[in-house]
Amino acid sequence: MQIPTRSFSALVLVLLAAACGSTGDSSSMPAASGGAVVQGTVMGGGSQNMRVAVPASSAATTTDAAGGFVLTDVPKGAAALQFSGGGQNATLATAPMVAGEFRRLTVSISGASVTEHSEQTETEFEGTVDAIDGMVLTVAGRKVAVTDATRIRKDDAAATFADLVLGTPVEVEGTLNADGSVTASEISIEEKEEAERIAFVGTLTQIAGNTLTVGGRTVNVGSSTVIVKGDATVTLADLKVGDRLLVRGTVQADMSINATRIRVLQREDEPEEMHVAGQVTAVDATTFTIGDTKIATDASTEFEGSGFHSLADLKVGDFAFAEVMKQADGSLLAKEVRKFTPPPPG
């Protein structure tokens, strides 16, 4: 996602604890409150230097030359984004924000009309499994659908749905659907800790062995720290001074942060990687469409799953996850495609 070139100061976001409800173990994740981060792209004429704001709050930013933006300090529960500038003024109704959430979205705007491309909306958030209904979890107040393509991990190893019991603290990654539910692409089972969990956005200013300075805070990187950039997992050696990072972790007695997850926010001059997920609406010889999003394939595209070897095995009506790279001309090229079967309606 393109990132505004201006710097922004570190913002500490205290992550959400267990969502309301008595079915889970409320002690598995400490109670907290805080803001969220939205990284997005505005498509359409006049998308440059457009103001993006959360109504009735101080959260606001401006899009860059490519229409990209990063909006921090988004209040928990915020359910609208306002886009204004260049003769356009439109408000988008969104699924309510979860505290500490990272959300990535793409919108198209024309005059007073703005549309979210829901099949491209990604979310990462933490919470506790508070309810289980078939293959649907309730985490941080959201319904999370676990499919046959969902990857479940614990301690950097594969886990199963059976490991997701009530009270389990998890981090969920997936597609945020228009109804506010989530189709999970990956669920990471986290350790039950009493320590305060926080997240913050800041610029990496120093690397000293396994210790980073991010937005003036000391961040400890351990063997279990997951570092991601776009859709790829990277290493500590891939981090560079000047990178903008979203850090999640636990606060230590000396106020340093033991990082559990670090996300590198992509710069404006870097290729954009993203997920697209949903029902397939069209397929031809070299492209397919999920929702309204058209995706190309080439010889390097990987098709993952039993009996899924090529685009010829994908049919209209199937459900698919696609990891894609945005090309210079704005088109999307699939790196990996996975079919999935959504849980039956509740």
Rank of each mutant, 00 (worst) to 15 (best):
D179G: 01
I152L: 08
G44M: 11
K143A: 14
F200P: 03
G317A: 12
L13H: 14
F8C: 01
E190L: 10
V234N: 07
G174I: 12
G167F: 06
S181T: 15
F83V: 03
T160P: 04
A232M: 07
D163H: 03
G35K: 04
D284M: 07
G330I: 08
I189M: 13
R261Y: 03
G209L: 05
L164N: 03
T235E: 13
T106S: 09
A253Q: 13
G291T: 12
G305D: 09
L16I: 04
T5W: 00
V146P: 01
T94P: 06
S331F: 09
R244A: 06
A296H: 10
G278T: 11
D155P: 03
E323M: 11
L204I: 08
R51T: 15
H117S: 15
T225H: 01
F161G: 06
A277D: 11
I109D: 01
I198T: 13
K143Y: 12
Q82H: 14
I152K: 12
I198E: 07
L16P: 03
S185C: 09
E101R: 07
K154W: 11
Q88G: 12
I207A: 08
M274V: 05
E302C: 02
V170L: 00
L105D: 10
E323Q: 14
G141D: 05
E126F: 04
G86C: 02
I262V: 14
R104I: 00
V219D: 13
Q120Y: 02
A32I: 01
G249A: 02
V316A: 04
M97A: 13
G46H: 11
A157I: 11
S181P: 05
I189A: 04
I207V: 14
G40T: 01
I262C: 02
Q48W: 03
A31T: 11
T123F: 00
M97H: 00
G34T: 00
G202D: 10
V74D: 01
L246V: 07
A78S: 11
S7G: 12
E336I: 10
A328D: 15
K143D: 10
P75Q: 08
E101V: 06
F200A: 01
E336W: 00
G215S: 03
A36W: 06
T63V: 01
V221Q: 03
S300M: 09
G305R: 13
T205G: 14
L176G: 07
L16G: 14
T168A: 05
K192N: 10
L176N: 05
S7D: 13
G21V: 02
F83P: 04
V276Y: 09
T287M: 04
K229L: 00
P30S: 00
V283G: 07
T138G: 06
D269A: 09
